[in-house]
């Protein structure tokens, strides 16, 4: 059996990749993908811990996270489409209307 620490390490790696991509990529779609990667890193950690402690709450959590992520993606893609219609770009640098 693979030890839990391996999973946690992989989750940390996935989370870091996601976080770095959010900070440095300019395309909002890619940023959005990176956020999903972060959510899935957390999911992996939940499932790994749930296996270690033989407690089902972690598994349950993951189901809810997947549902929430789907809802968030639906809203997010709708907003990205709207943004594209008004600005003809999904680049993060095009979001400069609001400042002060």
């Amino acid at each position: 059996m693979v030890p839990t620490s391996f999973y946690i390490f992989l989750a940390a790696l996935l989370f870091t990749i996601g976080a770095v991509a959010v900070l440095f990529r300019r395309n909002t779609l890619v940023i959005y993908m990176a956020v999903e990667l972060m959510l899935n890193a957390a999911n992996l950690a939940f499932v790994a811990f749930a296996r270690q402690f033989e407690a089902l709450d972690g598994q349950l959590f993951v189901f809810f996270v997947m549902t929430v992520a789907a809802a968030e993606v639906a809203v997010g893609l709708a907003l990205i489409v709207t943004i594209f219609r008004t600005k003809h770009s999904v680049d993060i640098d095009a979001m400069h209307e609001l400042k002060g």
Binding site: G18, A42, A45, F46
Partner: peptide
């Protein structure tokens, strides 16, 4: 996303 990762570690 960040918060969820924290929650998974606390779990």
């Amino acid at each position: 996303g960040v918060m969820l990762y924290g929650l998974s570690l606390l779990y």
